[in-house]
Design a binder for these strands. Structure first.
Length: 927
RNA sequence: GCCUAGGUGGUGGAACUGGUAGACACGCAGGACUUAAAAUCCUGUUCCCGUUAAGGGAGUGCGGGUUCGAUUCCCGCCCUAGGUACCA
């Protein structure tokens, strides 16, 4: 029988499912290993050939680890709350749960076709009440916690209440809102319930506060910062505006330092680590206050260069700064108002795009320099951003290029502050010289000046050392339907948690998935949706990232009804050892997950500071579009003639996308093309060499470009094993690459060769029990070593090539030895599990047990080179085949006499200076 | 602008700590088997010179450098992709 991928693959997929071959349990006699894929959002379009890339890699790794004797946890699930299902519901009225279930079924079918070794008994779906019960429960833990800076971790809110009861707000070092009150224990005790709750809310890790949010009117919801790309929504590309709203937020900024330092302990790709570092955006500097006696206030600025304080010649406020109104003098008021109106009209995008134009306006007021007391002008300008730092900067034109340009433009003073500065053409921020024009730090170096200044400012209570972060707290509510309800109700406008035994708080039914007439979120439509029939529930739902911020815990113990993960399970599985997914989650999911992981650790639910030890980003698979060229007539209208790529320049043509599935190796199947669209039925072709060659272009994979390739189609034609091997063969895992089916035949041929090697001409399984020869062992042990090395360093593409070489060698040797095959298929199993299982069974092993086999041990003895002639170069130049049976001693090279006549001619009487050995062989003689 | 990754045949790519550059595969050309096709197998395939061959020369984005020897290390530049930005 020929290699029949259809029957083999169907048989084993069914066997694995029926026997639960990959079901995992905690085991004490094997080390554990946790391999996780980023779970997919099940979209209506199903999987295309790009999606499984990372899943195949993780499956290969999981299967390999099993063969290496590890107890492997390799689960899969669905991130099933999200916008597309809801948008579809708005259009069609179909409940998102129905759409989602259908999409999941489709995904599952497609995943099963590829032959993954997932333990499906642990599947999670974030939209299942059994699952989101615990998402809500974790929210409650966050609501019930505060961050104690004294011990640098989150604690139960009860410990804070105790402190308030004992000593009031004194001596509390917490991450909190800015506007916390100062009170004594006695004050606290007489606070009303409402006052107490309002105060506590300022400390909770999940809190409700009036915040400036990214409001997307088109989507009818707020968005987190990572969901806004270049001023438009990540999903849909709709405009986003800044708006003040009461919103749930997560105090992720409390963890900024730990999120940053934790990056040093994980094995992640450098670009990803860098992205998170930039996102967190730590800058070390000082905050400095410029007194405003005229309004009995002060302007606080943040600076990373407090040493340049005496170079300040003016102060700049963002147009949105709260003091702008009070500081505008009557003469300047109209100019200021006009400027604010002008900047307000500019969209976020315009403001970012236009960094060249210098603009700003004088407020008419002056602030006092904190040390010299001199008056400095206060300006407003849109180069200062309201959202970063304090929304105000001290301008040092000699040291900062933006300030320099601004000062030049408006003719403001530029004060040199260092004897090493050159400020003829531009600002000079160097820290090398000694200070001048700088009061008491004159003559000091940078290292001396900074602490001196900070001490002085602290003494004056006009400044202090400060660390500033770019990262903001994460907005946690969405004004949408298809998400987790927030387990909160309101009494007198104060949020309270519902009781734990009420969980899960089920998502209620609504008549429409749109906001209410009064502009409330869709949950406002739910009838009778009140806590204990009297208190209003929170109407917004949780954001998309809620369910994905803890799901790796649930896989450890997915059926547990009492807790999100049992102590026993989490003590065994600990953290994810290998996580594979796309880099697009760098500042979203991967940051939020680390945050929740740390909170849950602080609260004592597990021990791991970081959830994902090693992370690999698989590169995106792009589409590769094919084009046909339609010939245009004299009036420029399309005719029925299509000209092949190589001849198109002789005609006036227009390119048209053509379905890549009717193109093979860029040659168009002209018959199928005629049925591609009705108006192509009588198409005529101008061929080159009897073929129609299509043009190509790399684009995003999308239906409208007819370049979507469905894995099911590939599997139908070539089989899952071929798909798995080919996706790996395509190139390095981490590299982005276009999908191109052109080379797939080579991989398919390889599998057929393996099959034929162990079958006779009649197609009967045929192995020999003879002892393998040395050459056969060599071929085998080369592949054992190579695949092991490759998998350990995630270089899957080179393994596939090595397999091909191995089988070519064995075919050459006509080797069908049982002992060779037995080990060969174990090595092959991670990549092509179906054919491996089949051959394993044919060899007479217990059916379906190859996954539990032991990876063969590499024996280096088989790889020792025999002493034949090989090329040697002299001074790295000429090469010759040296029949080297010479007994050479590298220590005494000068004594060496090389008798070979050819070599002597080249040596020309010169002494040998050095012999270069590589892997025990001489490869170069230096004379 | 800054950060990160990368630039190798007609194509995808290989070369792991500096050691025969182009493995493996696709494509292409020629051939075997076949009435024919499919399938399979064999040979060739970086470029230039050389009638075939033997042989020689050039060659890993560009220009230098270190080394007996550089795709690999160093310096300067060009280009591509991803991220990020008046971040004070």
């Amino acid at each position: 029988m020929e290699y029949n991928h259809r029957s083999i693959e169907q048989k084993w997929q069914q066997f694995w499912a029926e026997n639960q071959t990959f079901k995992t349990a905690e085991s004490t006699d094997k080390p554990k290993y946790y391999v996780l894929d980023m779970f997919p959002y099940p979209s209506g379009a199903g999987l295309h050939v790009g999606h499984p890339l990372g899943y195949i890699a993780s499956d290969i790794f999981s299967r390999y680890k099993r063969l290496k004797g590890f107890n492997v946890l390799h689960p899969m699930g669905y991130d099933s709350f999200g916008l597309p299902a809801e948008q579809y519901a708005i259009q069609t009225g179909q409940h998102p749960a129905i759409t989602t279930a259908a999409n999941i079924n489709r995904y599952r079918e497609q995943l099963d076709n590829i032959g993954f070794s997932y333990d499906w008994s642990r599947e999670v779906r974030t939209s299942n009440p059994d699952y989101y019960k615990w998402t809500q429960w974790i929210f409650m833990q966050l609501f019930n916690s505060w961050y104690n800076k004294d011990v640098d971790k989150a604690e139960s809110i009860d410990t804070l209440i105790d402190k308030f009861n004992n000593s009031g707000s004194q001596g509390i070092h917490a991450e909190s809102d800015e506007d916390t009150s100062v009170f004594s224990a006695a004050d606290w005790k007489v606070f009303s319930e409402e006052e107490q709750q309002r105060e506590l809310l300022k400390y909770r890790l999940a809190y409700l506060r009036e915040s400036t949010v990214n409001w997307c009117a088109a989507l009818g919801t707020v968005l987190a910062n990572d969901e806004v790309i270049n001023g438009v929504s990540e999903r849909g590309g709709y405009p986003v505006e800044q708006k003040k709203m009461m919103q749930w937020s997560m105090r992720i900024t409390a963890y900024a330092d730990r999120l940053l330092s934790g990056l040093d302990s994980v094995d992640w790709p450098e670009p990803l680590v860098e992205m998170q570092r930039n996102w967190i955006g730590k800058s070390v500097g000082a905050s400095v206050k410029f007194p405003l006696p005229q309004v009995n206030s002060e302007i606080e600025v943040f600076t990373t260069r407090v040493d340049t304080l005496f170079g300040v010649s003016f102060v700049v406020l963002a147009p949105e700064h709260e003091l702008v109104e009070a500081l505008s003098t009557d003469e300047q008021r109209s100019a200021v108002t006009a400027y604010i109106e002008k900047t307000a009209k500019k969209s976020e995008l315009d403001r970012m795009a236009d960094t060249k134009t210098v603009s700003g306006v004088f407020t008419g007021s002056y602030a006092k320099h904190p040390i010299t007391g001199e008056e400095v002008q206060i300006w407003i300008a849109d180069y200062v951003l309201a959202g970063y730092g304090t929304g105000a900067v001290m301008a040092v034109p000699s040291g900062d290029q933006r300030d320099y340009v601004f000062a030049k433009h408006f003719n403001l003073p530029i004060i040199p502050i260092s004897d090493s500065q050159n400020i003829e053409e531009q600002a000079d921020p160097n820290k090398e010289g000694r200070y001048i024009n700088s009061d008491f730090i004159n003559g000091m170096t940078y290292q001396e000046a900074v602490p001196a200044l900070v001490a002085k400012l602290e003494a004056l209570k006009l400044g202090k050392a400060k660390v500033n972060f770019r990262m903001r707290d994460a907005i946690f509510g969405r004004q949408r339907y298809w998400g987790e309800p927030v387990p909160v109700y309101f009494k007198n406008g104060i949020p309270y948690l519902i009781e734990e035994k009420e969980l899960p708080l089920l998502l209620p039914e609504v008549d429409k998935y749109l906001p209410t007439e009064t502009g409330e979120p869709p949950l406002g439509r739910a009838e009778g949706w009140k806590y204990q029939d009297q208190y209003e529930y929170e109407l917004s739902t949780m954001p998309g990232w809620a369910g994905s911020s803890w799901y790796w815990f649930r896989y450890m113990d997915s059926q547990n009804q009492d807790i999100f993960v049992s102590k026993q399970a989490v003590d065994y599985w600990k953290a994810v050892d290998l996580y594979i997914g796309g880099s697009e989650h760098a500042t979203g999911h991967l940051l939020y997950s680390r945050f929740w992981n740390k909170v849950l650790k602080d609260l004592g639910f597990h021990q791991e500071e970081e959830p994902f030890k090693k992370l690999i980003n698989q590169g995106m698979i792009q589409g590769r579009s094919n084009f046909v060229y339609r010939v245009l007539d004299n009036e420029g209208k399309g005719t029925n003639q299509f000209v092949s790529l190589g001849l198109k320049d002789q005609y006036n043509t227009v390119p048209l996308h053509v379905d890549v599935n009717i193109v093979y190796n860029d040659v168009l199947d002209t018959e199928r093309f005629k049925t591609f669209r009705p108006d192509f039925a009588d198409a005529e072709f101008i061929l080159e060499n009897g073929k129609y060659i299509c043009g190509t272009e790399v684009e995003k994979m999308s239906k409208s470009k007819f370049n979507v390739v469905n894995p099911d189609d590939i599997i139908e034609t070539y089989g899952a094993d071929t798909l798995r091997l080919y996706e790996m063969f395509l190139g390095p895992l981490e590299q982005a690459k276009p999908w191109n089916t052109n080379g797939i035949e080579g991989v398919y041929k390889f599998l057929r060769k393996v099959w034929r090697l162990f079958h006779d001409a009649q197609g009967n399984f045929n192995v020999s029990d003879e002892e393998p020869t040395k050459a056969e062992y060599k071929a085998l042990h080369k592949i054992i070593k190579k695949v092991e090395d490759d998998i350990e360093r995630f270089s899957f593409n080179t393994s596939v090539s090595a397999f091909m070489i191995c089988v070519n060698e064995l075919t050459e040797l006509k080797c069908n030895k049982r002992q060779i095959l037995q080990d060969l298929i174990i090595v092959l199993e991670p990549y092509a599990p179906h054919i491996a299982e089949e051959l394993w069974a044919l060899l007479g092993n217990e059916v379906g047990t190859i996954s539990y086999a032991i990876y063969p041990t590499f024996n280096p003895e088989y790889l020792i080179e025999s002493q034949f002639a090989y090329p040697v170069s002299i001074n790295g130049k000429m090469k010759m085949n040296l029949p080297l049976a010479l007994d050479l001693d590298a220590k005494a090279v000068e004594e060496i006499v090389i008798s070979n006549a050819d070599v002597q001619r080249y040596l020309d009487g010169k002494a040998v200076k050095k012999l270069i050995f590589v892997k025990g062989k001489i490869i170069n003689i230096v004379i």
